[in-house]
């Protein structure tokens, strides 16, 4: 059985046509299931737990990349297959996973090519593609038995995989079991021939030199230092298309 979790914004009239097309396609492909609309005040955790007990095997997130990343924290520990229907034509996750937007994504769901990918973990939160610290010189990075300090004017990116085509100069892979730590001048990262710093890591600690420093998680959420970051033991089982980029 499928569970469909809708972003709360999809109640808006402008999405009515799109939702109708998606739901019709779901019926055509005989992959119907229960639905839930996300609400900022409501956790989907209990809903998913209860449905798993009743035989649910797949959770499908319908929304944008922010919705998908947000929902990840509630589904990753459930050991359940995850699907994604991007509603925006430009979706980094959709591109990464080879999933077209709108009703075409239903064909990918129906195909059920399932891959296990890495996710990162910062303190108790999961992240899918990256963490960012804008002022690298405000923190000390600790890896195993050594420390890294950066000069002013640099930023730090910790990546599970690239979220943007512009970053293709630096190959990342969500199935390699490592995170890539980049340090580069602000505004210059991933430009061709940029002189960056790179460490491949499984876990690191980040502490502030003075006051707590914000870390941006998957481009939408902020967590403050100190932070323990690692590749999570849990893997995300996700339905992907044949045009996936890994």
């Amino acid at each position: 059985m499928y569970l469909y979790i809708y972003d709360s914004c999809l109640k808006d009239k402008k999405y009515k046509n799109l939702i109708n097309k998606i739901e019709n396609r779901i019926i055509d492909l005989d992959i119907k299931g229960k639905t839930l609309h996300l609400n900022l005040l409501k956790s989907i955790d209990n809903f998913i737990n209860s449905e798993i007990k009743q035989g649910a095997h797949t959770v499908v997130i319908i929304g944008d990349d922010k919705t998908f990343s947000h929902a990840l924290n509630d589904v990753i520990s459930k050991n359940i297959v995850v699907g994604y229907i991007p509603i925006e034509s430009k979706s980094y996750f959709g591109e990464m996973f080879g999933i077209p937007s709108g009703e075409l994504a239903c064909n990918i769901l129906s195909g059920r090519i399932i891959k296990k990918i890495d996710v990162g973990k910062i303190n108790k939160k999961y992240f899918l593609h990256s963490l960012k610290i804008e002022k690298a010189n405000d923190v000390i990075i600790k890896i195993d038995n050594f420390e890294i300090k950066a000069a002013p004017g640099n930023q730090i990116l910790i990546k599970n995989f690239n979220s943007d085509k512009l970053e293709k100069n630096h190959e990342t892979n969500p199935t390699d079991g490592i995170l890539d730590l980049f340090i580069e001048k602000q505004g210059n990262i991933f430009h061709k021939n940029s002189k960056h710093t790179l460490f491949t890591i499984k876990k690191i600690d980040i502490i502030a030199k003075n006051e707590s420093v914000p870390i941006i998680l998957d481009d939408y959420q902020i967590i403050n230092t100190p932070a323990k970051i690692k590749i999570a033991d849990e893997k995300l089982k996700i339905i992907v298309g044949s045009n996936r980029q890994f």
Partner: peptide
Amino acid sequence: ETIIGESVMVEGEF
């Protein structure tokens, strides 16, 4: 696999 750039200082056992 590892690049220590010009703007970075590393201290310890690497």
